[in-house]
Amino acid sequence: MASVVLADPENGGLDAMLAGLLTAAIEQPAKAAMLDSMNGTVTIAVPDAEVEVGLRFSGGVCRVHPEAIPGSKVRIEMPSDTLLGFSTIPLMLGMPSVLTPAGRAFTKQVLTRSVKISGLRHVKLITQLNTLLSLV
């Protein structure tokens, strides 16, 4: 059964925020099933807030760490306001939809490198994570 575990419950920063979003997401059976199938590691970095968070997906559990996971399959770097708004960007096939103004603005940030994504060959993991975090 899908679950989300905070590696350091005392930290209470971005790790707790992401854990809160993911925990709410897996209340939906389809998203719980998606988390069950996920495997891999993701680091999310927010340079302007000087915060990094690691997500480790394995065996139906997402473990959320208050630091980067060395050698993560995927590393996503974005400004704090972009990250907070990310969940409200409509998705198409698990990626921000360029058919919407918010999706186009995000894509522009990728093209101008204010959002950096490495590990794009793990596209399935990226689209699954985007879908889990999506609120629209």
């Binding site: 920063g13 971005l14 925020m17 979003l21 302007d48 807030a49």
Partner: peptide, 17 residues
């Protein structure tokens, strides 16, 4: 405040979504 929340300097309790 957004950065403060991400850094754990400001704690938020409630429905994150």
């Amino acid at each position: 405040p957004v950065k403060g929340m991400m850094q754990g300097k400001i704690k938020v309790k409630g429905d994150l979504p």
